[in-house]
């Protein structure tokens, strides 16, 4: 029930920011979050950033998926 996407913060001015998904840019409100910095990724829905993406968790999820693709005997690098 909620189309939302991780977007890279490219500018912050007060509680407003500009974010990008690839080459598409959008103005969003950052008022639902605290201390968002340029370079962060935020989950954007209907013109608002709802959460800051946790890069560590994203990497961990991808690592687990990567592990699934390798046959058991060879441990993940």
């Amino acid at each position: 029930m909620c189309v939302a996407f991780p977007m890279r913060v490219t500018a912050v001015t007060g509680d407003r920011g500009r974010v990008a998904l690839g080459d598409v840019e959008q103005e969003v409100s950052l008022e639902l979050l605290d201390n968002v910095a340029v370079g962060d990724y935020v989950i954007v829905h209907a013109g608002f950033a709802l959460q800051t993406l946790d890069r560590g968790e994203a990497a961990e999820t991808l690592a687990m998926l990567g592990a699934l693709t390798r046959p058991e005997e060879e441990p993940a690098p």
């Binding site: 996407f5 890279r8 690839g22 998926l65 990567g66 693709t69």
Partner: peptide, 20 residues
């Protein structure tokens, strides 16, 4: 699309389907 395309990788999809 960072943090989007990686979660659409075919290899991951096939691996998950295998586990399922």
């Amino acid at each position: 699309m960072k943090y989007v395309s990686e979660f659409r990788a075919k290899a991951f999809i096939e691996a998950l389907l295998g586990e399922i």
